[in-house]
Amino acid sequence: MDIETVRKVARVARLRLTPSEEMQFAQDLEEVLQYFSLLDEAPQVETHDFNPVRVADILREDEPSRDVNAERLRDSMDTYNDMVRGPRLS
């Protein structure tokens, strides 16, 4: 993986990398991706699923309930007048 690609992926993933990290990850990921190319040789399979066992019809009734105390959740975050405080959007 070239350095430019590493930088682009890091931006998408919200990671800032130092120049030496960029070099190191470029080298590591190149080797790993080369190894992944083994997948190109695997026989084609018609079906695939997103889970290893069949997961279907698992949604429960949508009934309101309170599992966790809301005040405790609020207290674990940065709040102001009962509102969660976060960074600027623009």
Binding site: R14, L15, M77, D78, V84, G86, P87, R88
Partner: peptide
């Protein structure tokens, strides 16, 4: 830096910088 664990208090930043700073 907002919901779990380490909290970034530098909220005057743009969200991209805020998230990237905590994660990096």
């Amino acid at each position: 830096g907002m919901r779990f664990g380490v909290r970034n208090s530098n909220i005057s930043q743009h969200f991209n910088d805020f998230f990237s700073e905590t994660r990096s």
